[in-house]
Simulated assay, not measured.
Amino acid sequence: MITDTHTHLYSDQFKEDQLEMMQRAKDAGVSRFFIPAIDSTYTESMLQLEKDYPSNVFLMMGLHPTSVKENYKEELTKVKQWLDKKDFYAIGEIGMDLYWDKTFLEQQKDAFRTQIKWAKERKLPINIHCRDAFNEIFEVLESEKCEDLRGIFHCFTGTLEQAKQAISYNMKLGIGGVVTFKNGKIDKFLNEIDIKHIVLETDAPYLAPTPFRGKRNESAYITNIVDKLVAIYRLSYKEIAEITTQNSKEIFKI
């Protein structure tokens, strides 16, 4: 059994072949799919996905940092309303993204901190999006760290030192297609990180692993990520699948 801890299966990119795409993933051994939120415009699609695949799909709720704009308070209110009326398995994806735009830096920080507090109150994990914002993310995590803080550093692309710092906040590292890239860099030090801190993800339809790089990603391609981890950790395919799925169970508590 393989767990994809981060996949946007509700994406319009899967509109034409969602059934086939899901079957390919199941045939590849992927049986659990954790679905991150972006903003309120995707909520209905997420709920429909859960309805269609109740045994396989597990939803998160949250406000993505690139959706933090002038109306972010209104969006956060919608997140809170959903958290109050329905069970979710994590709060995410949340965090900070300073790659495209720094205009809403303070608002992103506020939204991140607010959602972390909601996660701690509910004893839920968080799923962190971080792009060009490690220092800012760590600053918030440092101020919010406690026994109830846990989660996944989605699509981890940092250095060895940043990996160790993320782990110190009770975070697993979400490892996806980047580990297969020639210039991905994390493959150079990942063997220095105990595999107990690693979970698998695709971030489909984005960041397809080699040899599909540049094409639409899908959850079935997680097998290419497992193959890379087999080479890095010198463990069997089965061991990688079992250990990373167990790690995901520790985070999501299911």
Rank of each mutant, 00 (worst) to 15 (best):
I2K: 15
T7F: 00
Y10I: 14
D12E: 09
F14C: 10
Q18H: 01
M21E: 10
D27C: 09
D27K: 08
A28T: 09
S31A: 03
R32Q: 06
R32W: 00
F34Y: 10
I35C: 07
D39W: 00
S40Q: 12
S40Y: 00
Y42R: 12
T43W: 08
E44P: 15
L47S: 06
L47A: 09
E50G: 11
K51L: 02
D52A: 15
P54H: 07
N56F: 02
V57N: 07
V57M: 07
M61D: 07
L63Y: 05
H64E: 04
S67Q: 08
S67V: 06
N71D: 14
N71R: 09
Y72V: 10
Y72N: 04
K73Q: 08
E75T: 05
D87G: 00
Y89Q: 07
I94R: 02
M96S: 01
D97N: 05
D97A: 01
L98W: 00
L98Y: 05
Y99W: 00
W100P: 05
D101L: 03
K102Y: 00
K102N: 08
Q108D: 03
A111L: 07
R113V: 08
I116T: 09
I116H: 01
I116K: 01
K117P: 15
K117Q: 11
E121Y: 03
L124E: 09
I126H: 05
I128V: 09
C130M: 07
F134K: 03
E139F: 14
K145R: 15
C146Q: 13
E147A: 15
D148A: 13
D148P: 13
H154D: 06
G158V: 04
L160D: 13
A163W: 00
A166P: 02
I175F: 02
I175A: 06
I175G: 02
G176F: 01
G176V: 02
F181A: 11
K188D: 10
F189K: 04
I195C: 04
K196R: 11
K196S: 10
H197I: 12
L200Q: 06
E201H: 01
P205D: 06
P205M: 12
A208N: 11
F212D: 12
G214P: 07
K215N: 12
R216K: 08
R216Q: 10
A220N: 09
N224M: 07
V226L: 03
K228L: 06
Y233H: 02
R234E: 12
E239A: 09
N247K: 10
I251V: 15
F252M: 08
